[in-house]
Design a protein around this nucleic acid. Structure first.
Lengths: 128, 128
DNA sequence: CAACCAGATGCAAATATATGCATATATGAA
DNA sequence: TTCATATATGCATATATTTGCATCTGGTTG
């Protein structure tokens, strides 16, 4: 298999790891610093099982790493720039001229929110 | 639904559009300029139907746009920077310290190859 | 010119495979 | 035992891949 195909396959796999709302949220949350499972679950507003399962996906693919402290397990991004890269991806959504007003507004808010926190600072400091 | 969730959902959807080896390849090929379906099919080495259907996915989500000329349909990236963004994603694969030698080599080659073409120039001109 | 043929592309149905989610159960530390 | 987290199972849904057919276009031939 040519290297292009290998690379495309690997990259596609990475995209598929990110192709889940909960996991996007998790990565963005962790962009602000490490958090334990319980905090994440509370913020996401989903079941602990679901949170744990999605963390398992990210952990298995080494997108996040874990640190145990007593009964709590704290997760952090293995590569913090990843959160920044994901935020940058928001640009392409915004760039979609056909996007609905509501959608654009949602992203504008999201960008302000996330942009003012942690990883967002990498990208949005000199924009707008 | 809070805007964070909307945004995460939309972004996850975009990731899922990219989470396919053929589509990654297509985007990278189109990063070098527009191409017709036949050329893409030849380069990818997959059936025309598969090529067409993956193009449909990208077309429907307005990641690519089409232009008809005679019996040929030429596709191009709606947002050329997208290819650059994807290439940048390669960094996170390379950054994975656990990655196998073979995998790293494949990516090194891919980076050189793609990096010297079209969209790659956006990113890799002042690196290495 | 009309009929026809072939290339290029799109689309659909059938099947295979993968993914997500909830429920239930397990581990492990205090 | 209880709290925090992880994993297993089973089912529903979604996605991918192949096969076959429909459509459109341009050139060719009668």
């Amino acid at each position: 298999m040519p290297f292009r195909d290998i690379a495309a396959k690997e990259l596609a796999k990475i995209f598929s790891l990110l192709a889940h709302p909960d996991r996007v949220r998790i990565i963005e949350e962790l962009g602000a610093g490490e958090k334990d499972v319980n905090s994440l679950q509370a913020v996401l507003g989903v079941s602990h099982s679901r949170t744990s399962q999605n963390l398992a996906v990210l952990r298995t693919s080494r997108i996040v790493t874990e640190r145990r402290d007593g009964r709590h397990v704290f997760y952090r991004l293995a590569q913090p720039e990843l959160a920044g890269w994901i935020l940058e991806g928001l640009r392409f959504i915004e760039g979609d001229a056909q996007a609905s007003e509501a959608r654009l507004n949602a992203f504008e808010k999201a960008r302000q929110k996330w942009g003012s926190e942690a990883a967002g600072e990498l990208l949005f400091t000199n924009r707008d």
